[in-house]
């Protein structure tokens, strides 16, 4: 017992020394600045984060967490204040979110979460970009046609926030690979485009005991809900998974950019609220938006199995 204890305590001492050196370096890189509302703060530039990350052999997000813990604000997140507190930002940086499906919803969700400062992202899609994606998918461009959606999403995250730890998987989610692909995620985001796929993600999220945020669109209409492992979930929206069709109203109405971007924004905002344990989340509720009539309403799903 005593003999097996020493390597661990030694590792702790080493980790402690690394952290102390990192903290000292953060302090020397930080500069004094003033918030738009006049409040003074200590700021760490994104260039300094990259430099310290390389020098200390740690991820950028680890540098940012260490900075925030000593009240130094990574400048890239300064406009997140004060809607997000330093503690909120640390919590987001320590979180891992799996984005499943990287099309109209998932591309924009990835962009929004990376910019907000979610520390780790798992990006999952086996598909490649094609012409019909160009009307709404933020990662679809002439240069990305025929390229892997997962790879392009990973590339985009590296471009906008290299502090984020990214894993990209060029695989479609299945019941057999789901647990492996989502292992370690704190939240799953359903950005898929088939009903059976959505039910697969729900099963995986239940097994991993993590919450899942689900959005879907058709034409200029979008809907979003949040499902915790113990909730009735998607069957309240789509009925029995065994009877669920492959696709819904989008086969007739298509999928338009404003609905895709709005639904992605709603999902990203819900991810943040769920990670931060905010009260007004969409659990057992369905937010519906019709962009032709500018109507937005929250419906109660009840959790009543007789109505599933």
């Amino acid at each position: 017992m005593v003999a097996s204890g020493w390597p661990f305590s030694r590792r702790w001492v080493v980790a402690d020394m690394v952290l102390t050196r990192l903290n000292t370096d953060i302090d020397s890189h930080a500069i004094n600045r003033i918030m738009p509302d006049g409040a003074p703060y200590r700021s760490l530039s994104s260039k300094s984060v990259t430099c310290l990350s390389k020098n200390h052999g740690v991820d950028g997000r680890d540098v940012e967490i260490a900075a925030l813990q000593q009240q130094v604000m990574p400048e890239r997140y300064v406009r997140n204040r004060n809607t997000l507190s330093l503690e909120d930002q640390i919590r987001l940086l320590k979180s891992c979110v799996a984005v499943v499906g990287l099309g109209g919803l998932g591309g924009a969700v990835t962009e929004l979460l990376a910019r907000t400062g979610i520390g780790s992202l798992k990006l999952i899609d086996g598909d490649r970009f094609e012409d019909s994606n160009l009307n709404r998918q933020i990662l679809a461009s002439h240069n990305s046609l025929h390229q892997s959606k997962a790879e392009m999403a990973r590339h985009r995250v590296r471009e906008i926030n290299e502090s984020v730890r990214v894993s990209a998987f060029q695989d479609f989610l299945t019941d057999s690979n789901g647990l492996e692909l989502l292992a370690g995620a704190d939240v799953g985001v359903d950005c898929l485009d088939t009903l059976p796929g959505r039910f697969i993600l729900e099963r995986v999220a239940r097994t991993l005991e993590i919450p899942m945020i689900s959005a879907a669109l058709a034409g200029m209409f979008a809907q979003i809900t949040t499902i915790f492992p113990e909730d009735p979930g998607l069957k309240q929206i789509y009925g029995d998974p065994r009877d669920a069709p492959e696709k819904g109203a989008e086969t007739h109405l298509g999928t338009l950019a404003p609905a895709a971007m709005l639904a992605a924004s709603l999902e990203a905002a819900e991810v943040i609220r769920v990670i931060l344990n905010r009260k007004e989340i969409l659990r057992n509720r369905l937010l519906v938006v019709d962009l032709f009539t500018s109507q937005m309403e929250v419906m109660q799903l009840n959790g009543n199995d007789q109505k599933s």
């Binding site: 950005c191 058709a218 809907q223 109203a249 419906m299």
Partner: peptide, 10 residues
């Protein structure tokens, strides 16, 4: 009264 079809696009 609000009625919805199944919606699954992404």
């Amino acid at each position: 009264v609000a009625l919805f079809p199944p919606v699954g696009g992404g």
